[in-house]
Design a protein around this nucleic acid. Structure first.
Length: 627
RNA sequence: GGGGUGGUAGUUAAGUUGGUUAUAACGCCGGCCUGUCACGCCGGAGGCCGCGGGUUCAAGUCCCGUCCACCCCGCCA
């Protein structure tokens, strides 16, 4: 073995050799991907992160390497010295190296391998559980290797981009003081201070603002963040953000630097010129309000239609349109119990065009109803639009029996409905209707094949299916639990719009702010805000939130003091690097772009974390377990 | 916290109204094979049917509980 490695150095990766190398003597190191034994001739596909090369073992050339080829099994680690030769007519078009092969002249076994629990190939159909238990094997798969290498290039281009633009990279603490509000923190007992705890930072938010106060002007950090919340396919308890903050900037300045980063990443990693679709590399913007109205959420996937139609005004106008379930809602608006500019309950519809509606059975629509009930819907009202001769009446619909002709006509017009179309309705509390209808729209989009599937990359690039959008100007405040009081929709240091300042005391729900989210194909890539650096306005915001001077001091004292010590106007943004990597590699899950991810319960199936600790360890920390 | 789907050889799956020896493919082991590349041919081994309880003459199958994974709501930027 010493001869390999010490004397025989690797000359090529397993994906490197071509026609032009024929005749060269090479040294390859790699894993046995597959082995084909013809008795007096053995082929081994040798694999490393670079690719696959066919190695031939021929006893008539040399019996020693042949003996190794004969013993070798899947995933053994081999070293090969050999000569590149042409395959002649036996070309394999599936391999980049398929025109050549390496005739083994000398070979060594670095390591034998137990039979792997699953085969190391792309598109293997192995449960995620097994893959996570044997992650080191899973990570040998070419797709995951490519994804992690792409991720590495994201780090590189991101750092390079920001350094080119004069940003300073600063590390901020991971162990921080717990601050209430926002995401739940992980806690770490402080042994040197019994009874006290650190929190793991959910983001470097406060520190990056302090860095602006210190005069660093332009800050960048690629940073791990920690949130102890329930997980999803696109959420991990520890995740990575590209964290940015800038001084003396407005919203457009932030957008500009991020757009340039994104354009660069797409160019460098995918060879896609986003400027072709977005002239000047400027992404479109949409008001938060419009996004909610048309799509029901703040991260619209605009690659397909099926937009929402808000029928609330029509329902009010027609006093419920003769439909029993809608009449009480209309009445509440009429009586003034509900506000029309900030409605408590709304009525929305989605129109399914006749072409798709024709293929939907009663059972299928019932399944849709079950789907929306999972999300808090009481049911799923529906109506099939009849022929023109009937005045496009609503058929196969309980509502159709009592609805007034005028209301049906007006609703059809609003939806653009014609004969054969299917209308699906949802009404009730605004948040529920939005959630239900947003998810229903996505569900239908997938069902009807309107959303390009992952993996159809080459096709979608040409048709421009990288759909970027800035969602801007959301409200600063949301109603608190059970509609009582107001809470900050983002965080309380977001700057309100100047035009909104007048509403601050009188009508907080109407205050908009300089907050923004970058959305790509229905995925929230990141978000940020222009911060509030004016102590007077800050005080008024706290008052709306019911936070008194003392309380503010207690919670955010050091930041408030810093903001009074010469704070420049500033703002920033954080992009989810994992999600970015997921989209750039067209992976289906965040877990596929994180080397060692955790399950939905936050477990690492390979190491067994989290795990219990001894009573002694707890005692040293002065912590007692209740379990 | 709530809802859904799933758990059967190493892996992926099938398994009928509950019935005798639990199937298949791939992988693995042995043998044969000089142009394969999803190599081929012959033979073989391999199972706490997630775990615990119950019903029954009899449970992979029915019932209850529980654990794990994935998806969705709540939660979370």
């Amino acid at each position: 073995m010493a001869r390999f490695i010490d004397e025989l150095k690797r000359t090529h990766g397993c994906g490197a050799l071509r026609d032009t190398n024929v005749g060269d003597e090479v040294v390859l190191f790699g894993w046995v991907h597959s082995r084909r034994d013809h008795g007096e001739l053995i082929f081994i596909d040798l694999r490393d992160r670079d690719g696959i090369t066919q190695v031939v073992f021929d006893p008539s050339v040399d019996g020693n390497p042949f003996a190794i080829g004969d013993q070798a099994r899947g995933e053994w680690v081999l070293g090969i010295r050999g000569r590149v030769r042409s395959r002649g007519g036996n070309v394999n078009d599936k391999l980049a190296t398929g025109r050549i092969e390496v005739l083994a002249l000398e070979a060594t076994v670095f390591n034998r391998a137990e039979t792997p629990v699953f085969s190391i190939e792309d598109d293997i159909d192995t449960s995620e559980e097994k893959r996570l238990e044997h992650r080191y094997l899973d990570l040998r798969r070419p797709k995951l290797q490519r994804s992690l290498m792409t991720r590495s290039r994201i780090y590189h281009h991101t750092r390079s981009h920001f350094h080119d633009h004069g940003f300073v990279e600063v590390e901020t603490p991971i162990f921080v003081k717990y601050t209430p509000g926002g995401a739940r923190n992980f806690l770490v007992p402080a042994r040197l201070n019994p009874g006290s705890f650190y929190a793991l930072a959910e983001s470097p938010q406060l520190f990056k603002q302090l860095l602006m106060v210190s005069g660093f002007d332009r800050y960048i950090q690629i940073v791990k963040c920690f949130r102890d919340e329930d997980l999803r396919g696109d959420r991990q308890p520890e995740f990575t953000q590209i964290d940015v903050e800038m001084s003396f900037v407005c919203q457009d300045d932030i957008f500009g630097i991020i757009e340039k980063l994104v354009v660069r990443l797409w160019k460098e990693l995918l060879g896609v010129d986003l400027a072709e679709r977005y002239p000047g590399g400027v992404f479109p913007r949409m008001q938060f309000d419009e996004s909610m109205r048309r799509f029901g959420n703040d991260k619209p996937d605009m690659r397909f239609g099926l937009e929402h139609v808000d029928l609330t005004e029509l329902v009010i106008e027609h006093s419920g349109g003769g439909i029993a379930m809608l009449t009480p809602i209309a009445e509440k608006f009429r009586s003034g119990a509900y506000r029309r500019d900030l409605p408590e309950e709304i009525v929305k519809a989605i129109r399914i065009p006749a072409a798709q509606a024709a293929g939907m059975s009663r059972t299928e629509i019932d399944r849709l109803e079950a789907f929306v009930k999972q999300m808090g819907a009481k049911g799923l009202a529906r109506a099939k639009v009849g022929p023109e001769s009937t005045g496009f009446e609503w058929q196969q619909s309980p509502m159709g029996k009592t609805a007034t002709k005028e209301f049906v006509a007006a609703a059809n017009a609003a939806c653009g409905a014609v004969e054969g179309d299917l209308l699906l309705f949802q009404f009730g509390p605004e948040a529920m209707v939005h959630t239900v209808m947003a998810n229903l729209r996505l569900h239908l989009g997938k069902k009807f094949g309107l959303i390009p599937q992952v993996g159809a990359r080459s096709a979608t690039h040409e048709t421009g299916d990288w759909n970027f959008l800035w969602v801007v100007e959301p409200p600063l405040f949301e109603r608190g639990d059970e509609g009582k009081g107001w809470v900050a929709a983002h965080h309380p240091f977001t700057r309100p719009h100047d035009q909104s300042l007048g509403h601050l005391e009188t009508d907080p729900g109407k205050v908009l702010c300089y907050r923004y989210d970058l959305v790509l194909n229905g995925v929230e890539l990141g978000g940020g805000s222009i911060r509030l650096h004016d102590p007077d306005v800050q005080k008024r915001v706290f008052e709306v939130l019911g936070i008194g001077q003392e309380q503010a001091q207690e919670k955010f004292g050091f930041l408030l003091q810093a903001l009074r010590s010469g704070a420049p106007p500033h703002g920033g943004i954080a992009l989810g690097l994992d999600r970015l990597a997921m989209l750039l590699t067209e992976s289906e899950s965040l877990r596929d772009v994180i080397a060692f991810p955790k399950t939905g319960k936050g477990a690492d199936l390979m190491t067994g974390a989290p795990a219990g600790v001894t009573a002694e360890q707890l005692a040293e920390l002065k912590v007692r377990s209740l379990v």
